[in-house]
Design a protein around this nucleic acid. Structure first.
Lengths: 292, 292
DNA sequence: CTGAGGTCATAACCCCAGCTTATGAGGTGA
DNA sequence: TCACCTCATAAGCTGGGGTTATGACCTCAG
C-alpha cells in the first residue's frame, strides 16, 4: 500500500521503489501481485512513467486511510514502549490517548523525527499525579477543573453526545430531547468509574439522578457497536463517534439544558514552562485546537 | 492485529488461534513477536486464559481502527474487481464510492457473505447512464436533481463545508462569514469539473460569481493536506473532513446565506423496484440514514 | 537519425519469517 | 487426583519476497 501511494505521488515505479528502499523489480513484482490479488488494473505503465487508473485512484484513497491508521498505531505503540531514555514523557487520559495522541505523535514524528516519546495512559487523577511528581513532562486531562499544583492550558473541547441508530425514535425528533428523559431512559454506558460516566452522571444530577444503565460495556467500541446495532441510546465522546456520525450510522440527538462539554487541557508542573520536545508537542496540539 | 483483537474478545490465545484458522503455537509466537516489536506487554498470560494489559487495551483499540480501514479497503477492492457474474452491480459517484460505500459493503458482507458486488465509480451523469442502461442494478448519486428515467430515494445529506486550519483568522470568527467573502477569497479547490466544484460555483453564483481558486489540486486528500498545513481556506465534503474536524486539525467556518447541502440519492430504473441483493444494500443504506 | 537516459519486465537465485506437528509444563475444577 | 484446559518450546519445512543481472521499449536532445 505504501508502494501504491508512493507511485501515485511520484508517478513512477522505480522512483517509488527507491523511496521505499527496495529494488525496482521488487516494486514491479509487488504491484503486479497487488493487481492480481485485487483483480483490478491499478496503474497504467508506460515508458514515460506510471499513472494511476481511475480505479487505482479510488483504491489509493482507501489505502491511504489504512496507512494513516497504521501510522497512528505505530506512533502510539512506539510511545507506549516507554524506554526510560525517552526525551519526552507524556501522560494522557484514556480518551486523549486513544483518539488524539496518535495523530499528534505522527505529526510530531514528521516534524522532529528524532524525538522519542513515552506514553502513560490513565484517568485524570493518575495523569495529574504523574505530572506533579515529575514522572511525566506533559499531561493531558479532560475534566472540569485544573488539578492543583499544575499549570494548564485548554487545547480543545470534548463533548459527550447522546447518539442513537437512525431507526431509533429519538433520531426523528425535531425538537431537543428534555434532559429528564435522558435521565430516566436506560442507556448503553461504559462501566462505572469511567470518566465519561462521571461527567454524564454529574450533568444529569439536577435532572433526576444518575444515568440508568441498559447495558454496561467494557469498551467504547463495544458501546458503539451496540448502539449502531440499535440496542438503544448511548452516550459517547464526540471523538469516538465522528466516523459513525458522518456516515450516518449513528445520529446525534440534541438534548435541551444539558451541557456535556468538557475541556481538554494540557498540564505541566506549575512554574516549569514546557521547553524542548514538550513545547513542540504542545505547539502541535495548540495549533490543532487553539483557545477560542 | 486480527489476532490481538480476537484475543481481546475471546480471552484465550488458543481460542483466538482456532478462530483465525492457525495453530496455537503460531498464535503464541505471533503474539510474542508483536510484543517484542512494540516493546510492550500486551496480554497477561495465565493457565486460565489471557487477559489484556492496560496498554494492550489501548493498542487493541488502535489496531481495531487499522482493521476497519483494511476491511473497507478490502470490500472496496473486491467490488472493483467487477466480475461479470456479480450478483449486484453498483454504480456510485466518487464521494459515495470513496467514503460511504466501503462501509456499506463490509456491513453487507457481514450480513450476506455470499453476495458478490461489482462497483463502477464515476460522476453523477455516468452513474445515471449506467443505471438507465441496465449496466448497473443500483446507483448512488449526489446532486440537486433526480436524473430522468430513474426512481430515487434520498439516503442522506452531504454538505460542503468551508474549512480552515485553526490558526486561520476565519477560525476565530464569532459570527458567520458573509457568502460574498467566500466568493471573493481565493480558495483551495479540486480541479474544474469535479462535483464539489460545480455545487460550490452554483451556490456562489448569487453572491458574486464562481469561486476563486488559490490552488487547484488533483485529489481530495491533497486539498485537505494543504488546508491543514495552513495554505488557505478549502471547501470540502463533510464526509472528507470528519476526522480532521473531530481532531480539530481543521475548523468548520459557518457561512451566512449559503446552502451547500446536497442530497445523496440511491437510484434505479423507473418502475423496477430493487429486489434481492440490491434491496439488501438499499436497506442497509437507508437504515444508516433514513429520510428525515 | 542515433545514442543516452529514462521507463518497466523477466529470469535465476537465495534467504528467512512464519507455519506446522509433537511434546511438555503448569494450573483449575469435579 | 485425574482429566482438561491453558501457554511455551523444539525441530523441520515451505514459499513469498527480496536481490542482482539483463533486456526491451520509448522519448528526447543533439
Amino acid at each position: 500500500m505504501e508502494l501504491l501511494v508512493a507511485v501515485a505521488r511520484l508517478g513512477s515505479l522505480g522512483r517509488a521503489a527507491r523511496e521505499l528502499g527496495i529494488s525496482q523489480p521488487a516494486a514491479s513484482g509487488r504491484m503486479r501481485a497487488l493487481e492480481r490479488q485485487l483483480g483490478v488494473a491499478l496503474v497504467r505503465r508506460s515508458p514515460g512513467g506510471s499513472r494511476l487508473t481511475e480505479s487505482g485512484a479510488l483504491v489509493t484513497e482507501w489505502a491511504r486511510k489504512v496507512l494513516e491508521a497504521a501510522a497512528d498505531f505505530d506512533a502510539g505503540a512506539r510511545a507506549l514502549r516507554g524506554q526510560r531514555d525517552s526525551r519526552l514523557r507524556v501522560a494522557a487520559s484514556m480518551t486523549v490517548a486513544e483518539y488524539l495522541l496518535p495523530g499528534w505523535l505522527t505529526a510530531l514524528h514528521v516534524r522532529h523525527p528524532g524525538t522519542a516519546v513515552s506514553l502513560a495512559a490513565g484517568n485524570s487523577v493518575a495523569v495529574a499525579a504523574q505530572v506533579a511528581s515529575g514522572a511525566a513532562d506533559l499531561g493531558f486531562v479532560e475534566g472540569l477543573d485544573v488539578p492543583a499544583g499544575l499549570d494548564a492550558v485548554v487545547i480543545g473541547q470534548d463533548r459527550l453526545l447522546v447518539v442513537v441508530a437512525p431507526a431509533h425514535p429519538w433520531a426523528a425528533r425535531r425538537r431537543p430531547l428534555p434532559a429528564a428523559e435522558v435521565a430516566t431512559t436506560p442507556l448503553l454506558l461504559r462501566e462505572e468509574g469511567s470518566g465519561t460516566r462521571q461527567v454524564l452522571d454529574a450533568s444529569l444530577a439536577p435532572h433526576g439522578g444518575p444515568a440508568v444503565p441498559l447495558l454496561e460495556l467494557a469498551s467504547t467500541t463495544a458501546v458503539k457497536t451496540a448502539a449502531v446495532g440499535g440496542a438503544g441510546p448511548a452516550v459517547l465522546s464526540e471523538l469516538a463517534v465522528a466516523d459513525e456520525l458522518s456516515a450516518h450510522r449513528l445520529v446525534d440527538v440534541p438534548v435541551a439544558g444539558l451541557d456535556l462539554r468538557r475541556a481538554l487541557r494540557a498540564v505541566w508542573p506549575a512554574g516549569h514552562r514546557p521547553a524542548g520536545p514538550a513545547r513542540d508537542l504542545l505547539g502541535l496540539t495548540r495549533r490543532a485546537a487553539p483557545r477560542r
